[in-house]
Design a protein around this nucleic acid. Structure first.
Lengths: 261, 261
DNA sequence: CCGCGTATGTGCGGCAAGGCACAGACACCC
DNA sequence: GGGTGTCTGTGCCTTGCCGCACATACGCGG
């Protein structure tokens, strides 16, 4: 699929056959540009243009694997829309998301540190687009452009801090709070308050059973915070969702803002 | 207390009044040197000497806080003996260790990334010594010495990967397995198979109740893997402990070896 | 050798979540 | 408009852990 013939439908989550509720955020009328990635936007104009010249714009297609756990990283991605989830697997039945990357971040951080392999699987969860650059060019850019390196160093610190908090969050917080947190994070990155995810799809993200998601989601729905049916999730009360979620959501945001400015 | 009058007793854990079992690893007869830190040992001789010239050797005293969560990092530490635990707190009653640093690592990683504050509290858990350098000098060394920067970048990747695994480990593995893992990690860093930690002391590390530790420890003892009484823990069967622990122990080691060489 | 403080063990009730199984419910397609 | 597959809801039993409370056990110092 070429960039030119991108269709209007935005698929967030597994393929759907009925009318999606999520077409509002990204489309020809609100075409993303490179400046939509916060890390690149933070660069001096000259550096940014140089970076963009060496990269190409690609679509992020749901369920696409941008890099595989333990394998060589071919490209780095700077999303300009859509989002990507960083997953670890401890064995075949235990999966868990340890990070969510949207237009505020990048995929392929290990290359910043000079390591060519990825400690997690990067899996597209929300369709959109990204600026992509091959590993070798990226390393060259990094060496030539101190501002890029400095920005990405700070981003690495954010990732690391959020990982540390995720350890505690997963240890202490109940499913319902973590689900609420995840919905908020997703809302931010999808720039939309409606998206498509089945419980089945959500379960491995939170590292719980499908039924666990059902229970938590039912509870959030009864509280009037969200509405969903057959995968279509709508956020009704963002405020309320924030108080139903653990403080980790706000903590994460504060860390990002505090470090990235 | 000056370095010169260091006494032979090694205190690992809270102060003890009866005969410690842990005096074998560090003492005048086996004085640590700068090369005992793996990160520094990996540097070219010239760089290493330059680094050491700018640092000073300090004792690590149990319960000492090397840096506080959210606060400015005054110094970086390269342990040559003893070990330091990286703790996060989610609220006043929920604490959790997210990393353990011994002679294989360093404390103060955010400074490598140019961030002056720490996302966790670094707390000395096993007495020993370290090479210490103030933040400004460290930044200067880093800028002047590409080999140092490169080594520490790789170490950062290891930290990050281990953090990602810790999220899953804490999510999926039972207390007993995590305790076994922790004992193995500690044994490696203490370079001793006996040390002093009460259950009360261990609880916040694993993020569980004291009674949880008691149960897990009792179980490991019944399996004949460890022996303990009143805080004195002896590892009897390292092999057995490895199979009682989760695979995360081995995974962590493989990551370190694979990246740091 | 007695008492006190610290460290460990146990017991009970409760809750979050897992495993398993099955029952609706809705959307789409023929 | 009835069948089919996907998605969601419910029920029952088990488990791992928490909170709380109390019961020992050990070591040290007087």
């Amino acid at each position: 699929m070429q960039r030119g013939d991108r269709i209007e439908t935005v698929v967030i989550g597994p393929p759907i056959r009925h009318t999606p509720l999520t077409a509002k955020s990204i489309g020809p009328s609100s075409r993303r540009t490179s400046a939509d990635n916060a890390l690149l936007a933070a660069l001096p104009r000259k550096d940014r243009l140089h970076f963009i010249a060496g990269s190409d714009e690609v679509d992020l297609v749901v369920s696409e694997v941008l890099c595989e756990l333990g394998e060589r990283i071919g490209h780095v991605y700077f999303p300009t829309g859509g989002f990507v989830s960083l997953m670890v697997s401890i064995d075949s039945s235990s999966h868990l998301e340890v990070g969510l990357v949207g237009a505020e971040g990048m995929v392929g951080t290990p290359l910043v540190l000079g390591v060519p392999t990825s400690p997690f699987r990067a899996l597209v969860k929300g369709a959109g687009s990204a600026l992509r650059m091959d590993a070798a060019s990226f390393r060259r850019n990094l060496a030539q452009c101190p501002a890029l390196r400095e920005t990405l160093d700070r981003y690495l610190y954010v990732r690391m801090t959020q990982l540390a908090n995720a350890v505690a969050c997963n240890r202490f917080h109940v499913i319902e709070a973590r689900l609420a947190r995840w919905l908020l994070m997703t809302q931010d990155r999808a720039r939309s308050d409606a998206f498509h995810f089945t419980h089945e799809f959500l379960a491995p993200i939170l590292g719980v059973r499908r039924v666990g998601v059902t229970k938590a989601a039912t509870s959030l729905q009864k509280l009037g915070l969200i509405r969903y049916s057959r995968g279509n999730i709508t956020i009704l009360d963002r405020r309320g969702l924030m108080s139903a979620s653990c403080e980790c959501y706000q903590t994460d945001q504060e860390i990002y803002r505090g470090i990235m400015g």
